[in-house]
Design a protein around this nucleic acid. Structure first.
Lengths: 239, 239
DNA sequence: CAAGCTCTGTACGCTAGCGCACATAGGCGT
DNA sequence: ACGCCTATGTGCGCTAGCGTACAGAGCTTG
């Protein structure tokens, strides 16, 4: 028999009281998420919500002409599928696995039942959704005002915060899709960071070698989002 | 004695069953909102939530250097202050009255009590919050991919949808602050629209004379947001 | 080992939007 | 009526990022 505490591998679930986890444990299912896998398509109902453990999921807006932009990123601090409990059931955005790994998932209906118990889980999910709102808002600002260089730093740091080590498996092409810029633009910016000794990469493997250096270059957007996540999701007593 | 149906001047409240409105009526207060008034400052707790009647409120992200960007706009289809019931109490964004008018407001604590009854009001507010998420996400995309021309069209249409007539009181300077672009850029785009006979304006007064023309020029972002608002908030039966 | 594909680097002209400076013009108060 | 403030128009050089094209370089697969 698994201990309910295994669910705490997801930091969001880790904020729940242990007796809640115990009750929920049987409903959860551990799944493997592969790079590029879609967890949610525009306008389609999701069957499950996903609580990542060591995977990262990007929420993307895709436009008619195929151009895309990442509007938020979800790792083990969060959950993919807020539209299920928010009542809309679907969203116009896609959820794509950006870094392979594992997640716990829960059937949509079970989550909704849980949500409408109006207990700690509901309060937790709502606080998380507010953090997500902030991330989206800040992404909008960043897209407007900051350079590709700065946005690449932000993106690297956001990813790093959600990964165990300091390595990312990610091509410049994919990063460009996330940021909604040209691949060549990413090549150029990544080249600068490599020359400055902050990262090293080859063929889809990026290693961050100087995190403080990245933090020195990033725009304020990163800190704003991080501060808000910490404020909203680091105080289990309020749940 | 006022009829509870006066609250239906706000379309969101209008989706609530009449017996709910009746119970809530005594708690509401009608207030006047003046141009430029702040309903919420970054990181500060709001005392009330506001349900606009004929006013428009912009949610703005303001950066350290003073540059700003509108991340969403709220009119009589919505409510200002979602952070109060989402549990975070504050947000890093500001809420500024963009078009003067009136609103019903409700004390924060009363709203929270109401929200935690887990009745129609809760479901309604959550659906609205999801619509807001979509608006923010689409704003992020639009900031990334579309021209000032297109964004001006989007902004005009979003405002028009939330106003009774076809006139806006708004200088190009203020529009530039909302969109996060230069004032001269707005002058130029607005000039094009005026030459094309879609709008006419002088010194802070804009009249939309050819709405279909605007709709023909706007990017898809406007339609995506509108469709999602309609889907989420035009079916009272689901509340 | 060779072929082929994917990833990365680089170059070049182009455009949108920026920052700045300044000119004009409408409305308002005295 | 006059002057002042605010809103709008315009011009100019500059830069970031785009679109396009193409070249080398490293896996991978037959």
């Amino acid at each position: 028999m698994l201990e309910p505490t295994v669910l705490q591998q997801n930091a969001l679930l880790g904020l729940l009281p242990e007796e809640e986890l115990e009750r929920l444990l049987p409903s959860f299912e551990k799944v493997t998420l592969t790079l590029g896998q879609s967890l949610s398509e525009s306008g389609q109902q999701m069957s499950h919500v996903y609580f990542p453990i060591d995977a990262i999921v990007s929420l993307l807006c895709v436009m008619e002409d195929g151009a895309s932009t990442e509007i938020a990123v979800v790792g083990n601090e969060g959950v993919v599928g807020v539209s299920l409990f928010m009542g809309g059931e679907t969203t116009p955005s896609r959820a794509i696995v950006q870094s392979a790994g594992t997640a716990y998932r829960l059937k949509g209906q079970l989550l909704k039942n849980e949500f409408y118990r109006a207990g700690p889980m509901q309060r937790l999910l709502l606080r998380y959704t507010q953090a997500l709102l902030t991330q989206m808002a800040q992404t909008a600002v960043c897209n407007r005002h900051h350079s590709v260089d700065q946005q690449l730093c932000r993106w690297l740091l956001l990813s790093l915060d959600r990964l165990p080590g300091d390595k990312l498996i990610m091509t410049q092409e994919l990063i460009a899709n996330m940021l909604g810029v040209r691949r060549e633009g990413v090549t150029e910016s990544a080249g600068k960071l490599q020359k400055a000794g902050l990262i090293s990469y080859n063929r889809g493997h990026i290693t961050v070698t100087d995190r403080p250096g990245l933090e020195a270059r990033v725009c304020e957007c990163y800190a704003v989002v991080k501060r808000e996540y910490d404020r909203l999701l680091k105080h289990p007593e309020v749940v």
